[in-house]
Nucleic acid binder design. Structure first.
Lengths: 81, 81
DNA sequence: AAATATTTGTACGTATGTATG
DNA sequence: GCATACATACGTACAAATATT
């Protein structure tokens, strides 16, 4: 599928940043976001998932610590090759 | 020495959270903060070093990722045994 | 070359929730 | 119940690095 939007549960106990990280991780592992591809920008994630920028950044930071993406100031966040 | 306060350079290029992490790391490695000891709370760090709480938290998070401390909600941040 | 736009990085403040003492 | 301490989440502003026009 394309553009399918797994939505976020703003009430549930799972932190928003973790839910978002889970969604993005799934997109990477499914190949929807292939190696080398630039991830949606923080601003885009804010608009798409209705979270604060800090929350989006925290999700991406988590993925970076997992080695799934690389963040580069001024360029973006890229799926690890 | 005791209670010596290495101060922070608010102008310099090094991020405040990193400067603070460096200061605390030095205190751990010098034995001033021995294994098992509770670190100063975020609130204390805010008052001592004149930074925002988020900045103090970021410094402690960095030390946790380095394995130097362990953070426990409701209890505090402890030097790793 | 220069100005503008985009994107991540840092830092602040505030509020509320969760866990522990 | 109350106080303390970390966790999450919001919003705002500006800086730094890169890309585009």
């Amino acid at each position: 599928m394309h553009g399918d939007l797994v939505s976020i549960d703003y009430e549930g106990k799972t932190p928003l940043w973790r839910q978002l990280a889970d969604i993005l991780r799934a997109q990477i592992e499914s190949g929807e976001l292939p190696p080398g591809r630039r991830m949606p920008s923080e601003t885009t994630l804010v608009q798409t998932y209705q979270v604060a920028r800090g929350t989006a950044a925290k999700a991406l930071d988590a993925l970076e610590r997992e080695g799934l993406v690389e963040r580069v100031q001024g360029r973006g966040t890229f799926v690890t090759e």
